[in-house]
Design a protein around this nucleic acid. Structure first.
Lengths: 304, 304
DNA sequence: AAGCCGAATGTAGCCGATTGCAATCGGCCA
DNA sequence: TGGCCGATTGCAATCGGCTACATTCGGCTT
């Protein structure tokens, strides 16, 4: 139905092969023929069909990214960077949002397979092994984050939570804090456990104190952060500083503190983990506090 | 290179036609044959190539969305809704971020054409006529927002800024405000002019006052909103309320007011336009103020 | 037993762009 | 004038899945 090279060919009085050569800038075609064909292409606003190209040469020129929460600026910023990078190279990015459901991750990966993406980044940390396997079996390169598992064709990027937490806790200690709380991620994802343990380990190592009631899971979102923090703050005794699993959680914590009538950082300190741009706009602004929010990244392995 | 129906067929000892029939649930195939083929498909994790399907039946099952700012929650929330809707129907969404550059809009549209999307939503309001034309010429249904122009195959959704502003201004008047300021959008997009004029019209109609120095363009982002507001607040006389072109601008305005030592809403009122979720987290929270932030939407036309 | 019917499966060509190989043509040399 | 060369251009097959049409085969009718 749409225009094809053959139509262009007919109108320009040549064969489709020549049209294709012109499109791809082959030097074999006469200047005159080239111009004539380009004219027709212009006139008809012709654009070649990439599905056909894909079929012919095996590269879809599409990459996929699977994320848990499209409203979390951390992921949005990541998507933006990916999109920009691919845009430069005339490629596409397929974005899949899972809302933290592992079944949606599975279905998202399936969609990526259907489109024969040239590679996928999976930034959701909770999902079964099955989707990974099918990707590998179809020879699609995969990058995951905080999945703590690699293999042929699978790279894993892990955030150095242990190091980040150690820095953060040391800094708080130097500021005089002794009693620390922690609002974690959702139960389930491996990374939640890692973040929690990194915190606990750092606290113990620095000789500071925390306790069960001060370590509450959240959901990586503002609401969960606020609710969890409220639970901590409703205890008879409360910590002087609260660390969180990510920045959205910290924002929720800020709100909970406010609602309790506590001033930050006068009455209680709150520290996040991500350094998203949104950190600039909350009140009191994060940037008035020491910049503790950055985590260091390290690549575990990258295989062919 | 990857697995194809023909490979499956060979392994199952049938023809590719039969495999295709099984995949599509045709009732013509024997129970036994069906099971045998499904087994092979399972074992090899075979997934049909959608580019081939696209080529054969002419539908790409992909839709496109072009937005100016992927870090603006208003657009992120929109993208999320689109993505969810398409996900249900086994379709894909191609997201293109233009960062307010009309040349990037043009290139984004071109990418959509390359992929033969079944439809596009263009939420950037500044772009040339050329890309629209090529979409129409390729018979791709288009939806735009605030573009104030329709045609065959083109629908335009316009926000009723005039109505929203009228409501907002009336409300502020009832609260006792007489002198209003306005931080607009970036110079360029049609919608910026519309928003500014809607404000001005409402102010005049209600018999309130504003002036040139109180009406400053922003950039639809936090930074621009803050800078523009700072300019307004540096005048010898300042308004008692400031309206903004969108919510991010309002957030910037809040920050600027804070930096000037003004309390909101005690010293000055600030009103946004979008009602994004982020509005909940800024301080002082929007939701403590009368909910003026919602605009009413109306569809101009929708053509076949 | 010839003929017919319908169920199950196979054959082959198509969608649109690419590309190896073949064909054409003008020119030039012997 | 015949033959060869290089520059252009055309032909045709291919990628993977779908589907109209053809084929096969067992069973049943008369």
């Amino acid at each position: 139905m749409a225009i094809s090279v053959r139509e262009i060919a007919k109108l320009a009085g040549v064969s489709s092969a020549t049209v294709s050569r012109v499109i791809n800038g082959s030097s074999l075609v006469t200047e005159e023929t080239t111009l004539r064909i380009q004219r027709v292409i212009q006139d008809l606003n012709f654009v070649p069909n990439r599905s056909a190209i894909h079929l012919k040469n095996g590269k879809s020129q599409i990459y996929g990214i699977v994320i848990p929460d499209l409203t979390n600026p951390f992921f949005t910023e990541t998507v933006k960077i990916f999109e920009e990078l691919l845009f430069e190279n005339e490629m596409e990015l397929l974005v899949a949002n899972t809302d933290f459901h592992s079944t949606r991750t599975q279905r998202s990966v399936h969609r990526m397979l259907l489109r024969r993406v040239d590679g996928v980044a999976i930034l959701t940390s909770e999902f079964e092994a099955a989707p990974l396997e099918s990707l590998v079996q179809n020879r699609i390169p995969v990058v995951t984050t905080d999945h703590y598992r690699t293999g042929p064709g699978i790279s894993d990027i892990v955030v150095d939570f242990a190091g980040g937490m150690a820095q953060l806790v040391a800094h708080l200690k130097s500021l005089g804090h002794r009693k620390l709380g922690f609002v974690g991620g959702a139960d389930g994802p491996i990374t939640s456990r890692v973040r929690r343990e990194s915190f606990l380990h750092a606290v113990v190592k620095q000789g500071l104190s925390s306790r069960e009631g001060w370590m509450v899971p959240g959901d990586f979102k503002i609401e969960g952060g606020a609710a969890a923090t409220a639970r901590i703050l409703s205890q008879p005794e409360i910590p002087t500083a609260v660390m969180t699993a990510n920045d959205l959680t910290a924002i929720g914590a800020l709100r909970a503190a406010h609602e309790k009538g506590l001033r930050v950082p006068a009455d209680i300190s709150i520290a996040g983990f991500d350094d998203i741009a949104m950190s600039d706009i909350v009140h009191p602004p994060f940037h008035e506090k020491p910049s503790l929010c950055q985590a260091s990244w390290s690549t575990l392995t990258a295989s062919k």
